[in-house]
């Protein structure tokens, strides 16, 4: 039954997720076409004094376009999160929940299917958006700097190695470690974010009225609590390492990676607690209006 739940969940969530990725892809493609067009190249590399106004206008338009593009991607990310939250609430606890909750499946299967599917689509969105931004930024820089993409990639690789070695010598940590932390955060974060979101929405079932609103309030409360716990742990890390930081202020930079790991660990703990709490609510505390 879990496989069937996955099948239907993946297809339903994928309709919106796929559409958002497709829209982002089309906008990125339009951006790429503009960046590689002779018009953009002419504007960027104009040296004629009479073209300074054109250059200024195009620079402003480019800036606005970049802001708009970034805003669109961020908006899509936030919009997708809101869609996932609304869909979870509707399919589990409102009228559509009358079908979901009477399926012959275990409560744990329902929650697993919802969290894993939504987390997977969040991850797919994040990867797609990162690729789109990288493509657009890469082509943009390549045109502005007047170097080929391959030369640019080679330069980035060399710079990365230089910075990595420098940081390793300076503070005893490598950029690679930070990179791994970001990747782990990115992958795990998609699933913990969704588990926390869905868990908080499920907490709304404890209320007799306005269960959706109570779910939103529970989510905000969980986020505040997470920030407090993060703050306490990070303060503890700083206190423990205080003497070393006093001796060598650059050591504080190595704390960033540790703090990121602490933040991730806190979100994992909250996600696990809320995941099992959601199952408990669906199994034992369901309170459909």
């Amino acid at each position: 039954m879990l496989g069937k739940l996955f099948k239907h969940e993946f297809r339903n969530v994928g309709r919106v997720g796929g559409m958002l990725i497709a829209i982002s892809g089309v906008v990125t493609l339009l951006g790429v076409i503009y960046l590689i067009s002779p018009l953009f190249r002419t504007i960027v590399h104009a040296t004629d004094d009479t073209n300074w106004m054109l250059g200024l206008v195009s620079a402003l338009m480019g800036l606005l376009g970049l802001v708009g593009y970034t805003g669109m991607l961020l908006g899509m990310g936030v919009g997708f999160m809101i869609y996932l939250a609304v869909r979870f609430y509707r399919s589990m606890y409102s009228d559509q929940g009358y079908l979901t909750q009477t399926l012959p499946v275990k409560a744990s299967d329902l929650i697993i299917a919802k969290v894993v599917t939504a987390g997977t689509w969040m991850l797919i969105m994040t990867i797609a958006m990162t690729i789109f931004v990288s493509i657009l930024a890469g082509i943009g820089f390549s045109v502005v700097m007047d170097v080929s993409i391959w030369d640019m990639l080679k330069t980035i690789k060399q710079s990365y190695q230089t910075i990595n070695e420098y940081l390793n010598g300076l503070i005893g940590t490598a950029l690679t470690r930070t990179g791994y932390t970001i990747i782990v955060n990115g992958i795990g974060g998609s699933f913990t974010t969704v588990a926390i979101l869905f868990g908080a929405i499920s907490l709304g079932q404890y209320s007799w009225k306005n269960k959706g609103m109570m779910g939103v309030i529970a989510y905000l409360a969980v986020r505040v609590l997470m920030s407090v716990v993060n703050g306490i742990f990070n303060a503890a890390v700083m206190v423990v390492n205080q003497s070393r930081i006093m001796e060598d202020p650059s050591y504080a930079m190595t704390m960033t990676s540790t703090q990121n790991l602490v933040k991730f660990a806190v979100s994992v703990v909250f996600a696990i607690v809320l995941f099992f709490w959601s199952i408990h609510i669906v199994k034992n505390r369901l309170n459909m209006e």
Binding site: G97, Y98, Q101, T102, N284, R285, L286, N287, M288
Partner: peptide, 9 residues
Amino acid sequence: IKMINGLLR
């Protein structure tokens, strides 16, 4: 009816 169908405990 909701209790019979597991929608309420």
